[in-house]
Design a binder for these strands. Sequence first.
DNA 1: CATAATTTGTTGCAATTGCAACAGAAAATT
DNA 2: AATTTTCTGTTGCAATTGCAACAAATTATG
Lengths: 210, 210
Amino acid sequence: MNISLNSSDFVQQLEKSCNKSQKKLFHKGEVITSYIAKRNQLCFMLSGEADLVRYDFNGNRTIVEHFTKNDVFGELFYIVNTNNELFVEAKSDASVLFFLYDDIKQKCKSNCSFHQKLFDGLSSLFLNEVIDLNTRIELLSKRTIREKLLGYFNIISSKNISRTFTIPFSLTDLADYLSIDRSAMMRELKLLKEDGFIEKMGNRISLLHQ
Amino acid sequence: MNISLNSSDFVQQLEKSCNKSQKKLFHKGEVITSYIAKRNQLCFMLSGEADLVRYDFNGNRTIVEHFTKNDVFGELFYIVNTNNELFVEAKSDASVLFFLYDDIKQKCKSNCSFHQKLFDGLSSLFLNEVIDLNTRIELLSKRTIREKLLGYFNIISSKNISRTFTIPFSLTDLADYLSIDRSAMMRELKLLKEDGFIEKMGNRISLLHQ
DNA sequence: CATAATTTGTTGCAATTGCAACAGAAAATT
DNA sequence: AATTTTCTGTTGCAATTGCAACAAATTATG
C-alpha cells in the first residue's frame, strides 16, 4: 500500500470545497504567518518556498523547517509559548492556502463520502509530517558537525537518487538548518573534502567513500 | 475545540474492534520492537514506559523518544534505512498493542460511522505526535547545553504546572535524550545551580529566576 | 551596468563540550 | 543482607565548536 498521498489533488479538492479557506500570495522576503496565538491555523504551500525560522535571544537563527510545494505547516503543530517567535518567511514568491483546523474537523463530522476522503487525506498529511520531523530529529541528535553534514548529504542524495547534488539551501541557511555555526561548518566541509568524504564545487556536492 | 483526543478510549475501541491487532506483554529491559523492515507497524503503549533508542557507530546512545501510557510509536513513522538501528526498549513492565497501518486504513475505507470515528482518532493521534516532535526539535536545535537544560526544565515545569518537579528520567538518560555528554551536562547543572537558575536535590529540580 | 547586499571562504583565538577515569551513593539482584 | 550493578558527581585535559573579523566572490537591485 502506498502511504504517501497525492497531496496536490487533496489540496485542490480542499480549496474548491472549503469555503472557509483563504488563498494568499506573497513576495519573496515577506512573512507568511507568525505563530503567536493558538488559532490552530493550518497552511498548505501551493507554490514557492518558505522557511519556518526562530531567533533565540542571542540572535542565532534556526531554520526549523523548509517548505516547498504541497508541504503543510501552521500553528496547529505547535504549542505556542512566548519564549519563541516562530515565523514563516517566503524564500521566493509563494502562494499559500490557509485553513482553521476546527473548520476542517467540523465539516468532516458530517458523514458523506467526500468528507471521509478529506479526512483520509488529512491523516496522511500528518503522517508524512511525522516522518519528516523524525528525519530532522535524527540529524539534530547527531553529535558532531561532521555527522550532521554527512547525515544531511545522505538524505539529499537519497531523495535525488544520485551521489551528486546541489544543496537546496545557501550554505548560510544550511548552517542555520543544522543548528551550527557557519564558519565551523565551512571548516568541517573543508576537512571532509581533505579526508576524501566529499567533493565540493560551490554548493554542489558529491558523496564519495560510499 | 479540544484537539487532544481521549487516546485511551480510542485505543480500547481499536483493540476490541480490530481482529488484526495483537496485544503483547513485556518485561523491563526487553526489546518491544526494532525498526528494521518497513512493515508499517503502528504500536500503542497500553501501560508502562519505553524508550526509542539509537546507537551510533561510536557507541553514543540517543533516546529519540520516551513513551508512556497511550503514546503511539512504530516503524510507520520512520523511513527505515540500514544506517540506524532503532529499537524500543521497555523501561518497566509494559503492555503494547500492535497494528499494521495498512489494516487500519483498509478497514476505514468502508463507510460506517464507527470506522469514521477510528479514522478521526487516528488523525488526532498523528497530530499530537507532530506537536511532540516539534517540541523535541526545539530542544535539540538549541545551541548550548545550558539552553537545552533550561528548555527541557521549562517543558516539564509546564506539564506539571509547578516550578518544582522530578525529572522523569535518570540523569544518564536525560543526557542521552538531549544528545549531550553526561559529564558535560552534570558540569552545566552545577553551573546553573551556582548561577542561581535552579535548585537541585538529586533528580528534583526547582526553577528559580522567574 | 554600477552599486549594494549577501554569500562564501578563511583563520586565530577563546569558550564550550566531550572523553576518560574514578569515587561514592543508590538501586537492583541473588 | 550482602553483593553486584547502575547512577551520580567530579575533574584534568584534549578536541571540537563558536566568535569575530575580514577579503573575495557572487547575487540582487535601482
